[in-house]
């Protein structure tokens, strides 16, 4: 479950390889798992630093991307949850 107020931080082992079209591959060298993320998700990934707040990230997305979907907030929550489930991000204990 996603914590109410805090955001997870990225797993420092995971490599983010950005490509020419703004997409990127997230790759965990330990497990060999890899998957592609779109430019909006790349921006979220870069902001999961343990300091930036969810509201600030959402604001940045809205101002940086012309075609941010209306349900960006729920997409955001789903994406972050997915990262945690895959072990690509986690909460500090």
């Amino acid at each position: 479950m996603m914590h109410e107020c805090s955001l997870p931080t990225i797993n420092p082992q995971v490599v983010c390889r950005e490509e020419f079209d703004g997409w990127a591959i997230l790759f965990d060298p330990d497990s060999g798992k890899a998957f592609g993320i779109n430019p909006v998700a790349v921006r979220i990934w870069k902001n999961l630093d343990g300091k930036t707040k969810k509201e600030d990230i959402l604001q940045e997305l809205k101002s940086s991307f012309s075609e941010v979907p209306e349900n960006i907030e729920s997409d955001f929550v789903d994406f972050v949850r997915d990262l945690v489930e895959k072990g690509f991000a986690g909460y500090e204990v």
Binding site: E19, D21, W23, I25, N38
Partner: peptide, 8 residues
């Protein structure tokens, strides 16, 4: 292939 083709 572009990533968008697989994950978009």
């Amino acid at each position: 292939m572009p990533l968008s083709c697989m994950f978009g």
